[in-house]
Design a binder for these strands. Structure first.
Lengths: 242, 242
DNA sequence: AAGTGGTCTAGACCACTAC
DNA sequence: TAGTGGTCTAGACCACTTA
């Protein structure tokens, strides 16, 4: 990442908060920070804005800026467990890379629904990639992904076994940072039970996602069935600005 | 809401996008918009930034700003179904107000966990409010909420039956726009099955939330068991700025 | 080379809170 | 009344894309 000023300020303030520097839970006012960091007040505001979005601080007009007490108590809650879930391919649990077993790999015509979601024409084809992901030798996710062949014409099963997102990054210098996600739950099917070692009263979490490249092109539609014990989506929700 | 310039611009651009005005999927450049709206370029950037956060447009440095094709195809995906779920109390489904059946209402000492989450001391008390929420006479959610008595010392069962958030708004001019949410799934318990009319293979969604007032004070901890057919959390995820 | 978005600045003025 | 965050401006300069 480039060396942006507001980013540096943001990280520094975060570090100072974690270091327990502001025992009153109150941050210095924006004009002082502007002075001490030798940057404009706008830049301070931008840095602070990121921390507000992350739920780490609260601003109160007229009184000042305050640290979310929970951030000091339990920083793990701020880790956005859901974030890693967003990018299925760069999944990590406790820093461990998942294994992947390829269940199916084929090229098929895009169904009307997939056409709409990936913005394809009638005659276009997609890879249909079905994988079982395992952590610690435990099967955790059944994932079915659809990717337009025109985006990755040279995709191979070998690449699919490792990381499609890395491959995209390397071959096209594009990353995937945006997605729509929806999450729900349902009883497990026979296939779910068999692949994920579930009993019939144990459910699966269903995550469906559309992933976009930096330029807005839809890159992949993905449907995931997760072992319910591994589904945990956590997020900070801010209803301002709506 | 006040009549902020960037907000007006944001809404106007959104309206123009929905109206199909930009058939090329490309928006005018920022300097032109600045000119035509007679506002500064910074204000345009701010308005556009909101739309980027909502997943409605994508910016591409050097080329321009483009509409997310999915926004035109399927605006419902952009509705953040999860948003309403965030504020359990102002829940709506198809614009319908939920009914609420009070299952339990008492004042108890805050457990260590609740103390931590609501930032309370050892000797403090909380309301423990257990409600069953129904839509269309269908039981949908079992909710157990914990609220510090010191925040709402005059709370009554009558208020609880209607809307606690409205009550907070009226009595203290505070709203609740921020929360931590976590979502998971699990098999239904006997109580779940009985109250939500589930069979034993049907699961519940579990949403846990900590809700904050505008000034950052934790207001409520809530644990919800949702009928799995009504759990659908959708959101736009942007992994920039991390 | 021209066009477009990104970053950053310096400062004016407003709105709210606390005293 | 003093202090604090919010909004908005006008403009400089940079980085990237496209031709």
């Amino acid at each position: 990442m480039p060396d942006l000023v507001y980013r540096n300020v943001m990280h520094d303030i975060k570090k100072r908060i974690r270091g327990g520097e502001f025992t009153t839970k109150k941050l210095p006012d924006e004009r002082s920070l502007s002075e001490s960091y030798q940057v404009s007040r706008s830049t301070i505001k931008r840095a602070m804005g990121v921390l507000v979005d992350q739920g780490i601080i609260f601003k109160k007009r007229g009184s000042g800026t305050f640290i979310n007490p929970l951030y000091l108590k339990d920083q793990s809650a701020f880790r956005y467990e859901g974030r890693n879930l967003g990018i299925t391919d760069s999944f990590q649990v406790n820093g461990e890379q998942p294994q992947s077993r390829l269940l199916d790999y084929r090229v098929v015509p895009a169904s009307p629904e997939i056409q709409q979601e990936l913005f394809l024409n009638d005659a276009e084809f997609v890879y249909r990639i079905k994988r079982l992901r395992l952590f610690d030798d435990q099967p955790v996710i059944i994932e079915t992904g659809y990717i337009p062949i025109k985006i990755l014409p040279a995709l191979t099963p070998a690449v699919v076994q490792s990381s499609i997102f890395n491959y995209l990054q390397e071959t096209q210098d594009q990353s995937v940072t945006k997605s729509f996600l929806s999450i729900r739950a349902q009883p497990s099917s026979h296939e779910d039970q068999k692949l994920l070692n579930l009993t019939e009263v144990e459910p699966v979490g269903v995550m469906e996602g559309i992933f976009f490249m930096d330029d807005g092109t839809p890159f992949e539609v993905s449907n995931m069935h997760l072992h319910y014990k591994y589904l945990k989506y956590g997020t900070f929700v801010n209803l301002d600005e709506d």
